[in-house]
Write a protein that binds this DNA or RNA. Sequence first.
DNA 1: CACCATGTTCCTTG
DNA 2: CCAAGGAACATGGT
Length: 284
Amino acid sequence: MPELPEVEVLVRHLAPLLTGQRIDEVRVQRPRVIRPHAPPKFAQVLHGRLLRASRRRGKYLLFDLDPPSHADEPGTLVGHLGMTGRMFLQPRETPLPRHAAVIIGLGRQVWVFEDPRGFGRLSFDLEPVDRLGPEPLSEDFTPETLAAALKASSQPVKIRLLNQAVVAGIGNIYASEALHRAGIAPRRASRRLRWPEVVRLRSALREVLEEAIAFGSTVPLNFAGTGAADRLFYYGRAAEAAGSFEERLRVYDRADQPCLACGTRIRRTVLAGRSTYHCPSCQR
DNA sequence: CACCATGTTCCTTG
DNA sequence: CCAAGGAACATGGT
C-alpha cells in the first residue's frame, strides 16, 4: 500500500495505538526485511524500548524510541513498505499471516509487519530518509523548488517525479494522476516544462495527495488487509469490483477506458519499465 | 503458462 | 565521470 497517502493514513492509524507501548518481544521471521541488520542485534536494540512517536517522511515510517540504552543506540526505527508491506496490531493469540516478517510484542497485542514480496524494510538506517527531497504537502515545496529540480534533468517528467530526491513520496500511481490533472504529457522532458506548467504540476501533486489522504481517512480500512474491501490500498480491477469507484483514480490502470474529462481513450505506455497512463487529448 | 504488479538499488551501456 | 535503461529482488493475482 505504498505511496505517500497510504503511508500517511497508516501512520495516523498506528500512532495512537503505538504511543506509550513498550516492546517486550521481537521475532524476526524473515531476516531479509531487516537487512543489513542481523536478527539478534536487531531484537536486542528494540527490546525494552518505549515507542514515543510515529511519523512519516516520504514513503518512510519513522518510529521514535525512548530511552536509548546507550548513547550510540539508534533512536528511531525506520520502516518502508516496499510494494506489498503492511503493518497492523492484532491480539497475541490470533494466528499470524503467512508472510509475517517481523513480530513485535506490545503487552497483550503484537505489532505485525507482513510482506509477501519482501521488498519492504525495517531498519535503523536514516540515510535514505536524509536524501529525500521536500515534503510535497509542506511549505518547503514551492514552485521555485520544483522548477529547479525539474530543470536539472532531461528525463521524461513522469520519471523525474519518481525520483525521491526531487519530491518525497510520489510513486507510479500518483505521478500519472498528477500529470493528468496538470494537463502535462508524461514524456515531456523535465527541463522543458514552462513556468505555468510547473505551477500547475505542483498544485496537482498536492491536490492528488491530499484527496487520497482524505479518502483514506473517511473510508473504513482493514489494515491487515485481506483484499478488495480496502479501496485505498488496492488499485485496479479488484478495487473497482469492490464497489463504487468514485473516480478516485482518473487514469491509473484505466487503459482504453474513456477519460473522465473528455472521453478520449486513456493510453497505457511504458516509461523506464513502468506502466504510465495518460489522456492523449488532455495532456500534451 | 504468460504477464503484470503501489519500490528501490545496483549493474551495464552509451 | 554521468545519464539512462534494465535487471534483480520474491510472491501472488489475473
